[in-house]
């Protein structure tokens, strides 16, 4: 799938997120691109026991996005997977907006920041790059899910620390990079208006991003001793390893499909 500029809807979603995290002022300074990562079918076939989150490989989609619904690749894919999905034979208008029958299909858009503004979309279409710039998160179901690189922007630009965060001690820091959750007693300080089930940035004592997590409690309940109060969702250790493995598999998979 080719990289492209934001649609109006995506721009609104991202502006809202940048604003919520207190870095709205940098939105205009960044060149932001998106790329469709996967299509998720919302209806699954009970007989074949296919999960509703099964994905179509990117390269297959990219064929579809370049033209109309009669792409050979997508036909081949549909033939191979006949019966698995009910709504896969839909067409897309230039890979951006789903057609009428595609409303049941949910897409995940990867969001990238690139520092060079002089290249146009047309060049990216021609080059078909693997990656442009830095991935900062994903948009799914009209919601932006920040990644660790987005958190880096937040920490760098929101100097007042006016965002949900917890600062943890060194012992916890070393555990979190291996994917462990956070005990209340490991938290040195926290954002006072933290809410239950809210995404938080996990910082070490140097106020550096170590991970992202989800709060189980609100306010000062977050520091209750001897229980897990923050679930770690991403961290700088396993995040990169998972990312590396996933990318490796996905690239090989895509190349296999191209052949």
């Amino acid at each position: 799938m080719t990289f492209r500029n934001l649609t109006n809807l995506e721009e609104t979603i991202l502006k809202r997120s940048f604003n919520n995290w207190g870095i709205f002022e940098i939105f205009g300074t960044l060149r932001i691109l998106t790329r469709t990562l996967v299509l998720n079918a919302t209806i699954s076939d009970q007989n074949t026991n296919v999960s509703k989150h099964d994905a179509i490989p990117n390269k297959i989609l990219s064929h579809n996005s370049c033209g109309n619904s009669s792409s050979n690749a997508i036909e081949k894919y549909n033939n191979n997977y006949q019966g698995r999905f009910h709504t896969l034979t839909i067409g897309y208008s230039k890979g951006i907006e789903p057609s009428e029958s595609g409303k049941n299909i949910k897409r995940t858009e990867e969001v990238f920041v690139h520092s060079n503004v002089k290249y146009e979309n047309i060049l990216f279409k021609k080059l078909n790059p693997v990656i442009i710039g830095l991935k900062i998160g994903t948009i799914k179901n009209k919601k932006f899910s920040p990644g660790l690189n987005f958190a880096e922007f937040v920490v760098k630009h929101n100097r007042n620390m006016d965002y949900p965060y917890v600062i943890i001690n060194t012992k916890a820091e070393n555990l979190i990079v291996f994917g462990r959750d956070i005990m209340g007693s490991s938290i040195l300080s926290f954002f006072k208006d933290i809410k239950e089930n809210q995404q938080v940035i996990i910082l070490n004592h140097n106020k550096e991003v170590i991970g992202l997590g989800k709060s189980r409690y609100s306010g000062s309940l977050i520091i209750q001793p001897n229980i897990i109060t923050i679930d770690t969702t991403q961290d700088i250790g396993t995040y990169y390893l998972k990312s590396e493995n996933r990318l490796s598999k996905s690239i090989d998979k895509n190349i296999g499909h191209l052949l």
Binding site: V113, H114, S115, N116, Y119, F124, L127, P129, V130, I131, I132, G133, L134, K135, N149, E152, Y240, S243, E244, N245, L247, S248, I251
Partner: peptide, 18 residues
Amino acid sequence: LASLLFNLSRCFVQNTIV
């Protein structure tokens, strides 16, 4: 490629087209 993408992300590189 995976190792390249990993290192670009780890080092916070924003100006690369792979």
